[in-house]
């Protein structure tokens, strides 16, 4: 593969106090690729995801998105933290969908989807609203534009959250356990939307416990445990012929 990776992680290290959560993560994500991060809770997969858009600062290693070092810059041979404004600009190109949806609770679905394009990208409101209605229609919520988050089901909220992330026309979408907070009967509608995005060629990094989704949609699955990548490869390889005993044990438990 000759294309430049969209995400490049080199020996990414992260600690919270004495606890080493990530211990040297190396990972490339190419444009158009769907990568699912699997692993037991506490394995560091969510933390790694949050490092990609700099919601967490990394302590060592390098993390690039579109060839840009995330959250830092080099000056006169030294690495220094980027000003907030530049961090914000970098994040604007990376969408994120959260486990708890985190829709802005004082705004309607439509306002949630238009807020960032208008405030961050300075797009004209009519233009942003037109796009927002299209996105809400795409996630099957055209008739919910005027509803507040509290009036929507979990599945509907999460679909609005996906539309909100898409409204910034990101190069990359990060999903942090997007269906874990949902009632079982609502999981399907969210996975359907994600499947649709993947088909459209969206680059996605997905932390999930939905093995069926990972097997069907992912180009590559990455199995993490205790802050390291234990195994990665095509879904068929990892799911059907796991090489590591740790992967085997995990897969045996979730099935």
């Amino acid at each position: 593969m000759t294309t430049e990776p969209l995400v490049r992680a080199e020996r990414v290290w992260k600690r919270f106090g004495d606890h080493h959560v990530l211990r040297g993560i190396d990972l490339d994500v190419r444009p158009g690729e769907v990568v699912c991060l699997l692993g037991p809770s506490g394995s560091g997969k969510t933390t790694f995801l949050r490092c990609i858009n700099h919601l967490e600062k990394i302590d060592a290693g390098r993390l690039y998105v579109s060839g840009e070092l995330m959250g830092y810059r080099r000056r006169n041979g030294r690495v220094e933290e980027l000003p907030e404004r530049d961090v914000a600009r970098q994040r604007a190109g990376v969408g994120m969908v959260f486990q708890q949806f985190n829709l802005f609770s004082h705004m309607t679905a439509l306002q949630n989807v238009t807020e960032a394009p208008v405030r961050v990208q300075r797009r004209a409101r009519p233009d942003a609203e037109k796009q927002a209605r299209e996105l809400l229609a795409r996630v099957g919520l055209a008739d919910k534009a005027g509803h507040y988050p509290a009036e929507l089901s979990g599945g509907q909220q999460q679909r609005v959250a996906i539309a909100r992330a898409m409204a910034m026309r990101p190069r990359l979408l990060l999903f942090d356990e997007p269906t874990s907070a949902l009632d079982p009967e609502l999981v399907g509608e969210v996975l359907d939307v994600m499947r649709d995005l993947a088909r459209d060629g969206m680059t996605m990094v997905v932390v999930t416990h939905e093995m069926g989704f990972a097997r069907e949609v992912a180009d590559r699955v990455v199995f993490m445990d205790q802050g390291v990548i234990v195994e990665s490869g095509a879904p068929a390889e990892v799911f059907d012929e796991p090489r590591s005993p740790r992967t085997r044990a995990f897969l045996a438990n979730v099935r």
Partner: peptide
Amino acid sequence: GQIEAAASLGMTP
């Protein structure tokens, strides 16, 4: 989570 969501959309502090 509200602040993180806003940050992830590229909003400045």
